[in-house]
């Protein structure tokens, strides 16, 4: 019988490589992420998002009880379907309200306490769905211009952008929970 060469064991080496990739992914997911109760997630429906830069900026001053803030483009939902539905807030265009209406729901405790902001309101049956204005297309003024590409694609009309709270978020003051999402919204509205 001939001596087994290194090439006879190529499948085993490949299997190890696959195992190593999966193990590393799992380990890093474990150490760089945390549960929804200690995390805020903002999903942005824009082609260009400086998510890393924005996350680093927001990490400088985290709301109480929050260990990390994740900023993700909507395209991230291709990797993780639940990420859209589990986000605490969405930054969307005005035209997105119709598209995502089934996922929206009434959220109390912010609009009433912040009458100084502009809002866009849509009726969904008996519920009032609203978003707080972040960017005004007509004047070109607003927040997060350094981080979000508000400019429309070629052929599209410039639109206003709004921050909408997810009614299933754990940080909107429901059932005695914290209002860290509201605190984050206030912070976002001050960022250039």
């Amino acid at each position: 019988m001939r001596k087994r060469s290194i090439f006879d064991r190529v499948p085993l080496y490949l299997l190890w490589a696959l195992f190593a990739v999966l193990l590393t992914m799992g380990l890093f997911q474990l150490v760089t992420d945390t549960g929804r109760q200690n995390k805020l997630t903002l999903m942005v429906n824009a082609q260009e998002v400086q998510d890393v830069a924005l996350m680093r900026k927001l990490a400088e001053d985290l709301p109480d009880g929050i260990r990390m803030i994740k900023v993700r483009p909507f395209s991230y939902a291709m990797l993780s379907e639940s990420s859209l539905k589990e986000a605490d807030m969405w930054l969307i265009r005005e035209s997105d309200f119709e598209r995502f209406l089934p996922d929206f729901g009434p959220v109390a405790g912010y609009k009433e306490n912040h009458p100084e902001h502009d809002y866009h309101t849509v009726k969904n049956g008996e519920d009032e769905i609203w978003g707080v204005k972040v960017y005004d297309a007509a004047s070109g003024s607003g927040a997060l211009k350094e981080y979000v590409g508000y400019a429309p694609a070629e052929g599209e009309t410039p639109e206003d952008w709004y921050l909408v709270f997810n009614p299933s978020s754990l940080h909107i003051g429901k059932n005695g929970q914290d209002t860290a999402a509201f605190t984050l919204a206030e912070r976002l509205l001050t960022l250039p």
Partner: peptide
Amino acid sequence: ADPIEPGTQQLKATVFLVLGGW
């Protein structure tokens, strides 16, 4: 690991583990 941008460290760790295992 950088919780905000873990990609680079993760890649290094993966290469380290693959080569070490081999």
